[in-house]
Design a protein around this nucleic acid. Sequence first.
DNA 1: GCTGTAACCTGTCGGC
DNA 2: TGCCGACAGGTTACAG
Length: 281
Amino acid sequence: MPELPEVERLRRTLVRALTGARFDHVRLNRADLRAPFPPGFARALRGQRVRALRRRGKYLLAELVSGDILIMHLGMSGWFRVEKTTPRARRRRDPNRDLETRHDHVVFSMSSGKTVTFNDPRRFGVMDLVAANHLAGHRTLGRLGPEPLSRAFDADALARRLSNRRISLKAALLDQRVVAGIGNIYASEALHHARLSPFRLASTLAGARHTARDARERLVDAIKSVLRRAIALKEGDRARAARFRVYEREGEPCPTPGCRGTIARAWQAGRSTFYCATCQR
DNA sequence: GCTGTAACCTGTCGGC
DNA sequence: TGCCGACAGGTTACAG
């Protein structure tokens, strides 16, 4: 599932196809994803040139020379495919290929000679086009918490956002207003890395006592470390067994050195949580 | 205002 | 083999 590391890696791939290029043609294969495309979406994009491709949390933001911003969110199953543009007549029908392209919802033909296709079987993705000066007021982007890999995200910033929050730590990490870009997988991973129970009340990390301060410093370090490591993974390292310490490892021994616990699974905030009850407190 | 939960959606997997 | 239900998860809407 695309969380911050996956979106960042995708951004680095898309930069080459999009930056400096113009949208020669935009094809929408349906009228909506999770929400309808804004009126005139394809027409408004056509002819526009991409100045830069940024990421904010799990959102990809294509800054256009005109000052508009193309907002893209992958949802649960969205992904982009980059291919060299080929004339339609030369494409041959291929049943496997048809299966792969069944959920191609948006096709960008770029002046770079690349075709960038958005494929999203579950259609939880989002695309929107807004003026740059409306970005801060955007209903979701405008409320996002700090970027976890930025200097702005430190123990003090975390304390401010967890203060008075009477929800679990796991639920807090999933709240994009607390910190942007973490999803179900990396929330479990970071909490295990920090040796903090996913069931602990979020506000207990906001206190002035040194134990609370120590815990939130561990959590900030764990979040940064887990995300950086995931971003740095190469294509060949993507096997889940190599990537995750607790996620989808129910029943396996806890990987923390010296811990004799077993990874358990619980249902929390409507999501699966993987944790070790022995070393996560 | 805050919190928890259902709903959206479709591919996959296990059980029958 | 085929059908059916459960499950996965990011975000939003809604109820309490």
